[in-house]
Nucleic acid binder design. Structure first.
Lengths: 347, 347
DNA sequence: TTTGGCACTCCTGACGAAAGAGTGCCAGCA
DNA sequence: TGCTGGCACTCTTTCGTCAGGAGTGCCAAA
């Protein structure tokens, strides 16, 4: 049964699990007596103390001061999460609730907002979802609208009628009909193709000798290149930040401020989320592991979400390190799947 | 000199002003001795006490408990702001700094963000700016792009090349050329007109007998109506929320949470800002005056900003009730003007 | 009208004692 | 050898008390 990691006796494992469990519930250091009761086994506090001493020696728990109970360390959580966490799949009622909620939303943007609200609502922590990447959206059509001598408005319609506007500045002036021809040309050859592929093709064409290209094609390709080059700056949506104020470990106004500043700045959080994009499944940062000081007492559980096997973005939950990982992980996991599915339906 | 409000002796006024001033600085109740020193006049604390007693009777100040100093009440602030506040215009260096900062931004959206960052940065409180209303933007052109049987993408370009997308659903299917004709027609007759005016005209046309209208015109008008009807939901941009955590009176985690929830929800704040749109100048809500509980210990100073005499939106500052109004008001005022001017230049 | 004086109230911070929680260690027991 | 009860010890938390400080209100005198 227990494919126990090297040399941690079964009993110690169970105790670590119990301690983490209890600490998750009330955030107080757990003492030997409490743990004895918690554990249910017929063991005296003294025995528990011996094992706790071992766990402390291994660096899995520590006590804030001599006469306090023990608290899991980051290493303790890491071990717990990596080797002795067993996650049940989310119960079907919850899944149905999420699916229903998501099914009400129409646009990807709304879906993403709804997903982050769900994450925060269900976990009582902060939910975060990156906007779906457009990198692998399908090219549907493009239109060019001349606005002034040197400015052209490009409208790119992708996949499920997602629209993006780009303002282009051109050296020479293009007539409306020229632009019309260009867009017709592009729409014809690229419709239904993957945006990344379209871009690759464009680059290739621009490299090749231009002699055998007529004026119209030149225009078309140059403009399309401009449209595609400005990679949509990544962004994310957040909900339930204020839930984090409920946890005593974050009630310190100074920590709180650092945290909220990070949320507003977005840059650091985005960077962290980026790291999770290609993690192929649940990713967990515990406390200081993230490398960002403002997340010191926090953990982040993320999962990428994808459509048709293509990863579109990441979603997750940010909460105190003592969060109930076994509860949060299935929620994040399910939400990622369901968001992917919901995006797929609209597509 | 002093156009003193009925029956408040000059000296009492000066004392109230001093007290408010001092309280703004360190947030502690002000006692008679402190005030005596603060005031500079050669008056003994006992005298001060007598006058303070009068001010308390008038409801302008109150003491948290017997042996504490006095604190201005909401009525006290109201009186102060209404009748004995003299605001100097903002010094020209600060003005230049704001102007410069705003001049770097290109789009209205960026301008608004920059303005709110400036407000929060200069005042060390929270800055808030509503997005400019499009109600009176100028119609530049509209394009219709058919996407599927019943879905048409409408692109509305206004004023200084601001672009809005709308997805329309139509009963009957329109061909590309039909749509082209419709947009040509609309662009021809409405170019350069005020959006509100355009909408009014459209409504009128729809009322009139439709017999003398050809198919194309019908299409055009119906579609245009759809484009314009969905009034852009108002929104605002905020910056420096976390500055508010610095003030002890807001360090209570519970108050803080209510406040930040309100910021995230946006609805209530938006409603408040709405009330300020047509106030023709600086508007100040002090503490509970706003009617919203979460702003109990807070005040809000706002000013509408306008372009060519048309009010485009509101901006302001949210901070603790004890903020230095005489410093904040000129900042809000100047920023409103400068934002208006900056928007004008881009237009 | 202003002022100094005085008694009074209330908060605040310090100190110490007691209580409580938890630990480590040790000796005894199965 | 592993578990247990017991015990001394440590450290935090809580509570009450107490003194000090800040501020008030009132009164009588200038």
């Amino acid at each position: 049964m227990s494919d126990s990691k090297p040399d941690l006796p079964d009993r110690a494992q169970r105790m670590l699990r119990s301690l983490i469990d209890r600490y998750a519930r009330d955030g107080q250091p757990v003492g030997s007596r409490t743990l004895a009761r918690e554990l249910g086994l017929e063991l005296s506090p003294a025995t528990i103390r011996n094992v706790m001493s071992d766990l402390e020696a291994l660096g899995f728990i520590s006590s804030p001061h001599t006469s306090a109970g023990r608290v899991p360390t980051v290493q303790g959580y890491r071990f717990f999460v990596d080797t002795l966490l067993n996650v049940q799949p989310l119960d079907s009622r919850s899944i149905e609730k999420i699916r229903l909620e998501l099914s009400l939303e129409q646009t990807p943007k709304h879906l993403v907002e709804s997903a982050s609200a769900l994450l925060s609502g269900i976990t009582h922590m902060a939910g975060v979802v990156t906007l779906p990447s457009h990198e692998h959206a399908l090219f549907k059509r493009v239109e060019f609208i001349p606005l002034s001598e040197s400015r052209v408005l490009a409208i790119l319609v992708t996949g499920e009628d997602e629209v993006q506007n780009r303002m282009l500045t051109t050296e020479k002036q293009h007539s409306a009909s020229e632009l019309q021809q260009a867009s017709n040309y592009l729409n014809e050859i690229f419709a239904g193709k993957d945006l990344a592929e379209v871009r690759a093709t464009l680059l290739r064409e621009m490299q090749e000798t231009r002699s055998n290209m007529n004026n119209m094609m030149m225009t078309a390709i140059q403009m399309a290149d401009q449209v595609l080059e400005s990679k949509q700056s990544e962004d994310f949506v957040m909900a339930g930040q204020t839930n984090l104020m409920e946890f005593q470990e974050l009630c310190d106004i100074d920590k709180l401020r650092k945290l909220f500043d990070a949320f507003n700045q977005k840059r650091d959080i985005l960077h962290l989320l980026d790291q999770c994009v290609h993690s192929e499944g649940i990713q967990i940062f515990i406390g200081e592991e993230s490398g960002y000081q403002m997340l010191d007492e926090c953990s982040m559980v993320t999962a990428p979400y994808s459509v048709d096997g293509q990863i579109m973005g990441v979603l997750g939950v940010i909460g105190p390190t003592r969060m109930a990982y076994n509860r949060v992980i299935p929620i994040v996991d399910a939400t990622a799947r369901l968001l992917g599915a919901a995006l797929n339906h609209k597509e």
